[in-house]
């Protein structure tokens, strides 16, 4: 009775159930109606099912769109069908240097995004760790955060001209002030218990911050970075429409001038595809990095 190991039946089944998921070998699975399987409230449906459903749904939307144009329900001049957009996209790759423009846009987005992140992460952390820093920064941040970026385009051109600086500045402006608050919030949400565990085992404040608090906020931080990368694209198009001779915004705006709807669409689709791919990659990275969640 003294030794818990002497009574295996008391603890073994419960412990074992955690490690092994399978029950007895290969019994025929219980039949679950199809609808119940895929529409169980908050229940997982499996990764493969998710991917399949995502692809099938997209194909259905594209097919409906294509059919609607073919049958003349929608005017192809304003809403060219997917097949047409795809062909245009292909042509633009060779004739209009689409890859170059895409590269320029991606570089601008990432440049400004990294600049925002590098500045917002330490500042956001400081704001939440020291209430006086937070109190000092919050009014300013909140004020700028609500300014619409397009309204600042004229000022930005006066300050920086029409070169790369203006674009980077506008993108930075649109993301930095949002991100800083998100970072501060992520840090604030780290349970106080984690901080206290670290302190009671002898960590100095700087160690508490880097070994525990930062580590604890990391999953949320990566998520918020992913979201602000998306905002960057919104502001990029504004910046490139106003003052640029390269980039996807420029391509779209030029095509509009000649009423090349399918080229406009092709530009938009390119942005969408980049967004889809980078978002999925970042999600994958998130899953890989934070397996413990």
């Amino acid at each position: 009775m003294t030794d818990p190991v002497a009574l295996p039946h008391a603890s073994a089944p419960r412990d074992a159930a955690v490690g092994a998921s399978a029950g007895p070998a290969r019994r025929p699975r219980k039949r679950v109606p199809l609808f119940a399987r895929y529409f169980a409230f908050r229940a997982p449906i499996g990764q493969r099912a998710e991917v399949t459903i995502g692809i099938v749904a997209s194909i259905i939307v594209l097919a409906l769109w294509e059919v609607s144009v073919r049958y003349g329900w929608i005017n192809a001049l304003f809403f060219p069908p997917p097949s047409n957009i795809a062909a245009t996209l292909w042509g633009m790759l060779s004739d209009e240097n689409l890859l170059y423009h895409t590269g320029v846009s991606v570089a601008r987005v990432w440049g400004a995004f990294l600049l925002s992140a590098v500045m917002a992460i330490p500042l956001g952390i400081l704001m939440s760790c020291y209430r006086s820093v937070g109190a000092a920064c919050e009014p300013i941040v909140d004020f700028i955060r609500y300014l619409p970026v397009p309204a600042l385009v004229p000022l930005s051109i006066i300050w920086f001209g029409v070169g790369e600086e203006t674009k980077i500045f506008l993108l930075w402006l649109g993301t930095f002030f949002q991100l800083i608050l998100l970072v501060a919030d992520d840090m604030r949400r780290v349970p106080q218990e984690y901080i206290e565990i670290a302190r009671t085992v002898g960590a100095r404040p700087i160690q508490v911050l880097s070994h525990v608090a930062f580590r604890a906020m990391l999953p949320n931080l990566v998520d918020n970075l992913r979201i602000s990368l998306g905002w960057c694209w919104t502001y990029l198009i504004i910046a490139e429409i106003v003052a640029a001779d390269s980039g996807l915004g420029f391509v779209i705006w030029t095509a509009r001038r000649y009423m090349q709807t399918s080229e406009v669409m092709a530009g938009v689709v390119t942005i969408g595809l980049i967004g889809l791919v980078s978002d999925q990659l970042l999600r994958l990275l998130h899953r890989r990095m934070f397996r413990y969640l």
Partner: peptide, 19 residues
């Protein structure tokens, strides 16, 4: 005045690091 290694604590909640 402040925590140190001479006094260890088992907390009621959030008692382990998930990562």
């Amino acid at each position: 005045e402040k925590p140190d290694l001479r006094r260890g604590m088992v907390f009621q909640s959030y008692s382990s690091f998930p990562w």
